[in-house]
Design a protein around this nucleic acid. Structure first.
Lengths: 154, 154
DNA sequence: ATGATTTTGTTTGAATTTCAAAGTATTGGA
DNA sequence: TCCAATACTTTGAAATTCAAACAAAATCAT
């Protein structure tokens, strides 16, 4: 491995986990302490699903890469905690539509604000040229993994 | 958010998890199906600890960001599965030294090979100049988060 | 020296997350 | 009409993790 490879590998191995841990800790501080990270992820996914006009249980479970059964369990508690609402679809009574409450809105907003701040602080340390190359490179990295993931089926 | 910010945010939110999932799936295929991802992480950490000449339970637990109790539980099963060996230190009989077996060596090698392949395939898509800037930028990103993590105590 | 404290690790009971399998209800096609 | 597929829920079990209580060894203070 040459130096560039080492830098990249170190990033993938070490920094990856650091960032995830940092984000989780920050989320815990900035949002309701009543929620675990997994629960915050579920709430986020519900918002994204609503934006896409596809806030069914199946769709959200698929987006989260968890089974429908797992989502049902998660939504049970999030509903009882007052973050989500379940309602049957009128067109197809098998379908359950999941909607965030106002309380969930606050959590989601805090998360978005956090991300905004994190990214600004992060790009602050880079020159304009570095910023440009980083953005395009990461896009390529993303595409590389998307192809890999597709090749591995799913 | 401008385009660069969007690209970076998208990477952190979406691609991050894609990569982790891909890596986990690949590890599952390439190594013993007898091991979970957490267990593979423990084995990796033991190897790194041995390299640093500090393969005590405390050190390994700290590196993994789990409690000593959690590590004890994990090592119990990994010892019974034949991947790790426990032995008391002679100098300080409170200390437990954890060592990988030959079987663990195979798992670790597979993981390293996987990383090597991943990084080569990844850098393949980038020009030499992009490669250089990406490496230095990611190092800056790493330092940014290390400072953040430090600021948040720990 | 010796008694108190710290360090190192283990055990145990509980919480969280997740899944597979079995079950219910609804839909849509043959 | 009836049967297969779809959408979801329930349930029991496994994995991961932690906090708290414990034990043993080392070190510190007097």
């Amino acid at each position: 491995m040459d130096d560039h490879q080492k830098a990249l590998n170190d990033f993938l191995v070490v920094t990856f986990n650091e960032i995830l841990r940092y984000e989780e800790a920050a989320l815990k501080r900035w949002t309701d302490a009543n929620l675990s990270i997994s629960e915050i992820h579920v709430i986020e996914a519900v918002f994204q699903a609503v934006e896409q006009g596809a806030n069914t249980a199946s769709h959200i479970a698929h987006a989260l890469h968890i089974t429908l059964g797992s989502l049902t369990v998660a939504v049970n508690t999030l509903e009882s905690k007052g973050y989500l609402i379940r309602e049957r679809s009128q067109e197809d009574k098998r379908v359950v539509l999941i909607t965030p409450t106002l309380r969930a809105e606050l959590v989601n907003q805090a998360h978005q604000d956090f991300h905004q701040e994190m990214i600004e602080g992060l790009l602050d340390g880079l020159s304009s040229e570095e910023e440009r190359v980083l953005a395009t490179s990461l896009t390529k990295v993303r595409d590389f993994f998307l192809r890999k993931a597709l090749a591995t089926l799913e």
